[in-house]
Computed example of a mutant assay.
Amino acid sequence: MLILMRHGEASWKASSDQERILTDAGVAYVDRQIAHYQQSLLTVEKIISSSYVRAKQTASQVHNLIPEAQWVLDDRWSPDAPLSDAIAALEEHWVDNLLVVTHQPLIGYAVPFLAEGVVHTPEPLLPGQLVALDLLWPASASAIRLSL
């Protein structure tokens, strides 16, 4: 299973986009998401996140639930990374139960690419939202979208 998660709500008060931190509301919402999806998240073997502060904070919140999961930073999942690079990162880090904490618009392109084989306007995913996909390998139209 692949779980794609958009980072929590972030503040705009930062000297750069990479340094934006989660708002208090963002932290609280991610905590509620983790509690709600705990059963699915407990199966995660590896977490990938970009090095942007808000993604690392979100991933850290999940990692607190599953400290035994390996956590890697990979900026091929940063906001402006090409989808092809993000898919290559999935291939490199692939395990049966993988969580990726990432950003819009990349997550919005990854979901329809993996599930439908098309890349169109990004799917609107809210901060902190999770999407679970059942797939054997990350490729175009290779996934079935699951409800957690």
Rank of each mutant, 00 (worst) to 15 (best):
V111D: 07
H36Y: 12
V111F: 04
L90A: 00
Q129W: 04
P105R: 15
E116T: 11
V53L: 11
L83N: 05
L114P: 02
T102L: 09
V111P: 00
L41W: 06
S60P: 00
G117E: 01
G108D: 10
R54A: 05
E92Q: 15
T102V: 07
V100K: 03
H63R: 06
K46Y: 08
R76M: 04
I107W: 00
S60E: 12
P124W: 02
A86Y: 04
V119M: 12
V100H: 02
D74E: 08
Y109G: 10
L83P: 01
Q61T: 01
S40F: 08
A69Y: 06
I48P: 02
Q57P: 05
G128W: 06
K56M: 13
T121C: 11
Q57H: 07
I87H: 02
N97Y: 09
S78H: 07
N97I: 04
L126F: 13
L99Q: 04
Y52T: 01
Q61K: 11
S84P: 06
A59Y: 00
P127C: 11
A89E: 10
A59N: 02
P112F: 05
P105K: 15
V118C: 09
Q129D: 13
A81P: 04
Y52F: 14
D96H: 13
P112M: 08
A86N: 03
A81F: 05
Q70S: 12
I107G: 14
I47F: 01
A110Y: 05
T121I: 11
L99Y: 01
D74H: 00
H103C: 11
R76K: 06
A115D: 00
A59T: 01
T102P: 00
P105N: 14
P127V: 10
Q104R: 04
T43D: 15
D96Q: 13
L42T: 10
W71Q: 10
P122L: 07
Y52R: 03
